[in-house]
Design a protein around this nucleic acid. Structure first.
Length: 457
DNA sequence: AACAAAGACAACCGCGAATGG
DNA sequence: TCCATTCGCGGTTGTCTTTGT
């Protein structure tokens, strides 16, 4: 089939971007989010092709990009990754927080390539298609092995918790319960303290045999409904630090067999929310009490947030629109000695201003302020997109769940809903199971609903 | 000071995979 | 299932800056 040119050259500007163009692009994306690159220039008033806009945004304007000198650690990491992955810059970039593939590529070509050649490292030109070109002490690493599934912290607002719970509840089938039960029993055997969510991953150096390993069918590619949600997730959260969390939540919508994903999704929500809760509350004692109320708005108030002025995001994992299942095959084991919140529930600990998160290698560390930004952007964007229905993806989602979106009645037997935890639950996260029936968030007695069973993470 | 060469990096191009009607 | 469209990726080019002569 013929490929249409990415843009009509007539009247479209090329070359260096001006500050004015940058501002237009930033303003548009701030308001409407990423995506729809083909129509974006016209809507944003830019005489550029969509592709140019996307590149400009992705490689230069995105707020979560770290620019400037590469550190020694980053250099070393690039060298190591290049030895394994070759010129797969996007894959390499996933391991370097806040660095773009283009930047890494340029840095390699202008600095490291020559240096490595001078050192006589023969893997400079490693070709993944030609294993013989690989260095003797390394072996080609497949994408699914190296690509980090990057759970990122999310602490939704109370409203967002509801929204996400609605989705999680709608998506979670009764079979999810078995996974939850299984994972809980495994965890009990392995660690009576705190269940690490990585227990449900396909690869974690210290995990017991994962469900996925025992049930390969669980990792089937996402179906149409999953694609729908993938699209929505990417539309809604491309620029967000919490993209992977939401992505993992939403990716649990695969139609039939990927229980693995679904259970991971539910636990990811609660796990990361719990981590976020702990990390923020322990790093800033002044807001701890507010966190226990599940009311993020008060938390935001305490930070004196100005949403429009808090566009300084943090790294996102990037969206690979078609590889959700691939990239969610496992959590990356942190290479650096990140603080493991899942093993430390002592809220009396004193933390530095900068926070680190277990299992979030791509994120590295971030400050309280960055967490705040991520929360702000995530919750406001997610809620507005969900509630206004102004975007295609949202419309599609609402259509998809037209029959009772506001309820969380699942199938014909159970309801599973993931809740973020607070101190009342001992700092843990839980999934609750309700007996058969229809439940409504709008019900004033909602808080009195009694689950028949609860599972803690 | 003038010019050329090299370096650095933003931006572009084309391909292929993913997506959706 | 087909096929037009969209998007992401990796290679390459263009342009500006720095360095050397």
């Amino acid at each position: 089939m013929g490929r249409t040119p990415c843009c009509n050259a007539d009247g479209l500007k090329k070359g260096a971007w001006t500050a004015d163009e940058d501002q237009k692009l930033i303003a548009y994306i701030k308001e409407h989010g990423e995506g729809g690159w083909r129509t974006l220039p016209q809507k944003a008033g830019l005489q550029r092709c969509g592709k140019s806009c996307r590149l400009r945004w992705a490689n230069y304007l995105r707020p979560d990009i770290k620019r400037g000198e590469f550190s020694k650690e980053e250099e070393q990491k690039i060298i190591e990754l290049h030895a394994s992955l070759g010129n797969r810059w996007s894959a390499i970039a996933r391991h370097l927080p806040k660095r773009t593939d283009n930047e890494i590529k340029n840095y390699w070509n202008t600095h490291l390539k020559k240096r490595q050649a001078e050192k006589g490292n023969d893997h400079v030109c490693y070709n993944p298609d030609d294993p013989s070109s690989a260095p003797s002490n390394t072996s080609p690493v497949c994408e699914t092995e190296l690509a980090p599934a990057q759970p990122t912290p999310l602490r939704p607002s109370s409203a967002s918790v509801h929204l996400l719970n609605k989705i999680a509840a709608k998506l979670a089938p009764s079979t999810c319960l078995e996974t939850l039960k299984t994972s809980q029993s495994i965890a009990t055997e392995a660690d009576t303290d705190v269940v690490d969510v990585s227990i449900m991953n396909t690869r974690h150096s210290e995990s017991p045999p994962s469900l996925a390993m025992r049930c390969p069918d669980m990792l089937r590619p996402a179906s149409t409904s999953a694609r729908l949600l993938n699209k929505m997730a990417s539309r809604l959260t491309n620029r967000l630090h919490c993209i992977d969390t939401i992505k993992s939540i939403l990716s649990g919508s695969s139609d039939n067999h990927d229980i693995m994903h679904r259970s991971t999704s539910v636990s990811s929500l609660s796990e990361t929310a719990s981590d976020m809760s702990r990390s923020i509350s322990t790093s800033n004692g002044g807001i701890h009490d507010q966190m226990t109320t599940h009311d993020l708005s008060s938390l935001m108030d305490s930070f004196d947030l100005d949403l429009l002025n808090n566009w300084n995001g943090v790294s996102d994992g990037g969206v690979s629109s078609g590889s959700m299942c691939d990239t969610y095959s496992g959590w990356e084991s942190p290479a650096s000695p990140l603080y493991d919140f899942s093993k430390n529930n002592n809220n009396n600990n004193n933390y530095n201003d900068r926070l680190t998160f277990s299992g979030c290698e791509s994120m590295g560390t971030c400050s309280v302020g960055e967490v705040k930004d991520a929360l702000t952007t995530t919750t406001t964007t997610f809620e507005s997109e969900m509630t206004t229905g102004s975007r295609d993806a949202t419309n599609q989602l609402e259509k998809y769940f037209a029959d009772g979106f506001s309820d969380f009645f699942i199938g014909d037997s159970h309801v599973v809903s993931a809740f973020s935890a607070d101190s009342k639950d001992g700092g843990e996260s839980k999934a609750e199971v309700f007996e058969e029936g229809t439940y409504s968030w709008e019900d004033p007695l909602f808080e009195n609903y009694q689950p028949s069973d609860s599972y803690f993470f």
